[in-house]
């Protein structure tokens, strides 16, 4: 049974190039079956009707697979539920009359665009440095010409689950993008199709990650707790191995 709850929201408001501040809003008559973003939609409707600027937040699929949404809810990335994106967080997890603090994902490499929207294109710059494989176009090759062990295929898929939402960066005390980069490097390193560009991929992606102003991993594992897709820190260990191997080989 759904019921209606009322909440007090403390939301970060910021325009491009300006200093931000917290504003307080009342969110009344919120259905507990609503998602967190639907709750914000309701609040934004009221703001718009009263002639105020609605709260800007990013969203697309609203089913937890696109990686667009994400905010700090009471200091926790995507709210407090494990393996849940903000769009899949439901209002039944909040109490009537509760105060919720909503802030953007923050890191030096993620400048705020507006309100809760941050510029995460730094993650795309890392991908552009090698988060792909080069293949000849044309008909798809016969699948069994490249056998892949089941366990490896599964591990690669686990790494590929990363949706690039940036929660790991926002949760990291050092603003590091290690979990993201690790997942993206490892999803290819585990598969034969990723092997030809293996050494150069890890070198270039790590170099880009450093250049963009992300911090250094100090193995505190906040990222793994924050990740809505459950990307494991074993990927970070694997990234470290890839990096060591690539540099020992001295491949160009």
């Amino acid at each position: 049974m759904s019921k209606k709850i009322s909440l007090t929201l403390k939301v970060w408001r910021q325009n491009r190039g300006e200093e931000g501040r917290f504003e307080t809003y009342q969110a009344g008559n919120i259905d507990t079956d609503a998602s967190f973003l639907e709750m914000l939609d309701v609040v934004n409707d009221e703001l718009t009707l009263s002639g105020k600027e609605p709260i800007a937040f990013e969203h697309d699929c609203r089913e937890g697979i696109c990686g667009c949404c994400g905010s700090l809810v009471n200091g926790k990335t995507h709210g407090s539920h494990e393996r849940t994106t903000l769009c899949q967080l439901h209002m039944r997890h909040f109490k009537d009359g509760e105060m919720i603090v909503i802030e953007p994902f923050r890191a030096t490499a993620f400048p705020v665009i507006k309100d809760l929207i941050v510029d995460r294109s730094a993650l795309d710059r890392i991908i552009a440095e090698g988060g792909y494989i080069s293949v000849k176009t044309g008909n798809a090759p016969e699948a069994s010409t490249t056998p892949v062990k089941k366990a490896l295929a599964e591990a690669a898929m686990d790494a590929a689950e990363c949706i690039g939402c940036g929660a790991c960066v926002a949760a990291c005390p050092n603003g590091a993008a290690m979990l993201f980069t690790a997942a993206k490097v490892n999803q290819y390193a585990l598969l034969p199709q990723g092997h030809p560009e293996r050494a150069q991929r890890v070198k270039n992606m790590v170099a880009k990650m450093d250049e963009l102003g992300f911090g250094n991993c100090s193995n505190e594992y906040e990222c793994a707790v924050a990740c809505p897709k459950g990307i494991d820190v074993k990927n970070i260990a694997a990234l470290n191995r890839e990096f060591i191997k690539a540099n020992l080989k001295c491949e160009k």
């Binding site: 700090l72 009471n74 200091g75 802030e103 923050r106 890191a107 005390p173 505190e220």
Partner: peptide, 19 residues
């Protein structure tokens, strides 16, 4: 470097895992 990379303006950020 880590101090620079981490945005300290957060008012509410909580940590769960770090010792």
């Amino acid at each position: 470097e880590n101090r620079t990379a981490h945005d300290k303006r957060l008012s509410q950020k909580s940590t769960k895992e770090r010792s």
